[in-house]
Simulated scan of single mutants.
Amino acid sequence: MTVTQQYALDVYRAAQRGEAAPPAPLLDEAAAVRELRDYRRFRAVVAERPARGRIRAALARRLSGHRGHRGHAAGC
Rank of each mutant, 00 (worst) to 15 (best):
E19D: 14
E19W: 04
E19L: 10
E19N: 15
E19H: 10
A20D: 11
A20F: 04
A20P: 07
A20I: 02
A21S: 10
A21Y: 01
P22F: 03
P22A: 00
P22Y: 03
P23E: 01
P23N: 01
P25K: 00
L26V: 05
L26Q: 04
L27D: 06
D28Y: 06
D28H: 02
D28E: 08
D28Q: 07
D28S: 04
E29S: 10
E29F: 01
A30V: 11
A30E: 10
A30W: 13
A30L: 13
A31N: 05
A31W: 04
A31S: 05
A31M: 08
A32P: 03
A32F: 04
A32T: 08
A32L: 03
A32C: 08
V33C: 15
V33Y: 14
V33R: 14
V33Q: 13
V33S: 11
V33P: 05
R34K: 15
R34D: 12
E35V: 11
E35A: 12
E35G: 10
E35N: 12
E35Y: 03
L36C: 06
L36D: 08
L36F: 08
R37V: 06
R37C: 08
R37W: 07
D38V: 03
D38N: 12
D38H: 10
Y39N: 03
Y39D: 12
Y39L: 13
Y39K: 15
Y39V: 06
Y39M: 08
Y39I: 09
R41F: 05
R41K: 15
F42V: 08
F42P: 11
R43L: 14
R43T: 15
R43S: 15
A44N: 14
A44V: 02
A44L: 10
A44T: 04
A44Q: 13
V45C: 05
V45G: 06
V45R: 15
V45F: 08
V45M: 08
V46M: 15
V46E: 15
V46C: 11
V46P: 07
V46S: 08
V46L: 11
A47R: 13
A47I: 00
A47P: 04
E48I: 11
E48C: 09
E48Q: 14
R49K: 13
R49C: 00
P50M: 03
P50W: 11
P50F: 00
P50G: 03
P50I: 07
P50N: 01
R52S: 12
R52N: 15
G53V: 00
R54C: 00
R54P: 00
R54Y: 00
R54H: 02
I55P: 00
R56F: 01
R56S: 06
R56W: 03
A57G: 02
A57M: 05
A57W: 02
A58V: 00
A58N: 10
A58R: 11
A58Y: 01
L59K: 09
L59F: 00
L59T: 02
L59E: 05
A60K: 09
A60Y: 07
A60E: 06
R61L: 12
R62C: 08
R62E: 13
R62T: 09
R62N: 13
R62M: 10
L63Q: 12
L63E: 13
L63A: 08
L63N: 09
S64F: 02
S64Y: 03
S64I: 05
S64G: 01
G65S: 07
G65I: 06
G65H: 09
G65N: 09
H66T: 04
H66F: 10
H66S: 09
